[in-house]
Design a protein around this nucleic acid. Structure first.
Lengths: 347, 347
DNA sequence: GTGAAAGCGCTAACAC
DNA sequence: GTGTTAGCGCTTTCAC
């Protein structure tokens, strides 16, 4: 037995709700109500409570709260491997937004490996997360079933299973593609290559399709031979550029399905003494932080991490608060013009 | 009142320890002991318990555990801003290691801004983290006092306050510097430049000093004029390279205090049709993931993120388990030779 | 509008 | 070696 009944706690440890109640000369329930901003509390008493809270430096214990209320105020965030430079930026934004709403975040970076996924779901379940954001850009694979059977509200990016408890953030890739192609067309480009990942993750496929459609609409059809298949990574970009170089027939511009890929291509071309943008223009996708810092800096189709994070948290909150959840959110893109694009070399 | 006393829980909700006890026909304490691998439990009963655990898919509730035991099994991880590519890799490794020891991680990315720091410390305190790893490479500034007054065990990188509850991970920068300079010397380089950040964060200063000392020891003194001051970022590297270019007097090799910086320099030089490594060699520091993926790939002084993470968690565990804590740990470096270094252009 | 008391799921005395 | 039970810090009935 630790202590008998509820003696005043005179130790130097962290003050608990009873210490606050004592200091404010009210009951614990009043403290609880005041601290949780319940309407039914006399302003006079509330002030007394807050004063005590400040003086004692009281912090409510989230574990105790979760235990008794059944809601943890923790949001799960599942992302793909952290080597994609987009991911850390997304995590940070999500965290920022979630904290603003007083949610804690449980982050899990998963590879598409059963063991990892199982562990991840165990963590989410053990901590009783209130909702989960899955930001794997369509690459969630095996994960989906396990999440859904879990029953908590979810939000996905790009693709999502039909399910009452989930929403989708749909990025308007077509808008982005159109913006990029119109930009290049306006500069005078007619010979554009696509540097484009394979179908995995699905989002890359969407981007590729969007480029094709937009090119069609702008009457700048892109020949089959101008579609370079490579991973949407820096390494992929290097390989893709290599392929272009060895063909000895450079286009005047390259559209990439990711910034990482664009940066790889930029490096490879620079090394071969091809100058960007004088000899060739390059456009990236995502507008990762690094796009501002390359030389030359990269023109890119921005997907706002801030907006993604805000929308994701907002979607989950709607689920949690029973305000009729919204199934689908559309995210806009914006072309950020920097130094990697200019008029084509012949013009 | 929710339910009267402890009726069997027939709802479909998550099974609790009592459900397991019922299923295994033992008492809750036996379940608790078995699940926590206490030695004093009959193997026969333990097996019965584990069987029930598996059948019911029981997961202990960490919140309840924390509440009653006073230990949360959460480790705080405080890192600097996430735009440094080193940081996400560090987070992931730390997470990996911590999870292996059944610790959860509470990550906070902080800028050196009072509001952020206050919020971060509030989170750490509210969740009752058992210990904190501070991986801000000497740039913790205002943070330090607030952490120490908190009283939990801590581990710092490079620099740490004198304090009974904290350990330091000291990276052997001198070893790294020596490896790099010996490598260049062996290739025949005699005219080496340092691309080197200012004193903030302190770790950069340490690296710079280490380079100087190692150069001295290898009898390849580095002239004042060969020390280019710039930020240890990609942008810094671009600016530094620019400075070298405009001086019209290139060294045969550049040592950088970070990979980001090296990559920036690589880009800038490539753009100016200076070929790496034929015209100039470049060595980075940290061996971030991206160093493998640049063109040409980057020779770099590796600081193993895995080792850092393992050592940090190990240091904290020593504190937590009263095994006489160790004040200081030394981390070794390793030169990873890739394609950005070769013999100097004249030779 | 306020207080008393039950109990969230678990661990750790303590009694057997 | 096992079971019984108090209580971690909090929210939430329910009675006033």
């Amino acid at each position: 037995v630790k202590t008998t009944a509820h003696q005043p706690d005179t130790t130097t440890g962290r003050p608990d709700i009873r210490a606050v109640a004592r200091a404010a000369k009210v009951s614990v329930s009043t403290v609880s109500r005041a601290v949780n901003d319940k309407a039914t509390v006399n302003p006079k008493m509330a002030e007394r409570v807050w004063k005590a809270v400040r003086e004692l430096n009281y912090l409510p214990n989230p574990q105790a709260r979760a235990l008794v209320s059944g809601r943890s105020r923790i949001l799960g965030l599942i992302v793909s491997e952290i080597t994609d430079p987009m991911i850390p930026e997304l995590i940070q934004q999500f965290e920022e937004v979630a904290l603003r709403y007083r949610y804690e975040i449980l982050t899990a970076c998963i590879s598409n490996d059963n063991e990892h996924i199982a562990r991840c779901m165990r963590r989410m379940a053990a901590w009783n997360v209130d909702a989960i954001a899955i930001m794997t850009f369509g690459n969630e694979g095996l994960l989906v079933h396990r999440i859904l059977q879990h029953g908590v509200p979810t939000v996905f990016v790009d693709t999502a299973p039909e399910h009452g408890n989930s929403s989708v953030l749909r990025i308007d890739y077509e808008q982005g593609a159109r913006q990029a192609i119109e930009h290049l067309a306006a500069l005078g480009h007619r010979d554009i290559a696509l540097m484009a990942g394979p179908a995995r993750p699905p989002s890359v496929g969407f981007r590729l399709a969007a480029f094709g459609k937009a090119a069609q609409e702008c009457a700048i059809p892109i020949a089959e031979s101008r579609i370079i298949t490579c991973d949407p990574t820096m390494q992929g970009g290097i390989a893709g550029a290599q392929q272009l170089l060895s063909s000895n027939d450079l286009p005047t511009a390259i559209l990439c399905t990711s910034d990482a890929c664009a940066i790889g291509a930029l490096q490879r071309l620079s090394h071969a003494a091809i100058r960007v943008p004088q000899d060739i223009s390059i456009v990236g996708f995502d507008d990762i932080h690094m796009a501002q810092m390359t030389f030359p800096s990269l023109t890119s189709i921005q997907i706002s991490r801030g907006e993604m994070a805000r929308t994701a948290v907002c979607a989950l909150r709607r689920h949690l608060e029973h305000r009729s959840p919204v199934r689908e959110y559309k995210l806009h893109t914006q072309l950020i013009v920097r130094q990697s694009t200019s008029v084509p070399r012949s013009g």
